[in-house]
Design a protein around this nucleic acid. Structure first.
Lengths: 107, 107
DNA sequence: TCGTTATATCGTAATATTGCAATATACAGA
DNA sequence: TCTGTATATTGCAATATTACGATATAACGA
């Protein structure tokens, strides 16, 4: 009770769910969009950009990093985060292959 | 504490997060994939397909319906669920516009 | 070394999600 | 009307997520 029964589902289904979880919070969407726009790697001036506290941002970054969407490199005092190109492509394919499956034959 | 601060983010960011939440559970991914494959609208034989209890499936279907991804029509005793074409297209665009934003200039 | 700056981690409170037994509802056929 | 079948709702326990104050860590410059 309360635990997702991952063993019932395929690896693909679980991976998609995991990735979707990364997108499942507006703060993380905002972080991703900010990184996409900034293009060049930027660090946690996100704290000023979004209205959330520093520990909260840090936690969201950690989750995004855990899923592999972003990567961070230490740049002296600060940390430079950016989109992980390989994982991003992987994720894009994961979603696209789902969207592709749809044929409008029904209803 | 514990509440997502939706007011800090744009409508687009919140909508994307909401939709992503629908995909953020393997059972819901499995339901969507099943509907995509079956193509023709099917009902809750999902209970046998997935290994989850009937109330659990019903709950997931309710969430998917609330987000608009699927629609159900009463078919006598059973309910016929299927992908909502318009919403599906909308969601596809929502994700694609995010994926499009990426230019590999960084790292 | 000391202070400053940038991040990360810990601990915890509030809230949300997941799963299911029990129960309710709603339809169809006898 | 009664019975079975299909689905929904309720209530609750277990767990996960979100947010942040307090505190730790780590690098730099004076």
């Amino acid at each position: 009770m309360g635990v997702t029964k991952t063993e019932l589902f395929t690896a693909e289904q679980n991976d998609l769910a995991l990735v979707a979880k990364a997108f499942a919070h507006p703060a993380r969407v905002a972080i991703i969009q900010y990184l996409l726009k900034a293009n060049t790697c930027i660090n946690g001036n996100l704290v000023q950009e979004l209205g959330l506290a520093q520990p909260t941002i840090s936690q969201h970054l950690k989750e995004l990093k855990a899923i592999g969407i972003i990567q961070g490199t230490i740049e002296g005092v600060s940390v430079s985060y950016c989109i992980n190109p390989k994982r991003w492509e992987e994720i894009e394919k994961l979603f696209n292959s789902l969207f592709m499956q749809y044929r409008r034959n029904c209803c």
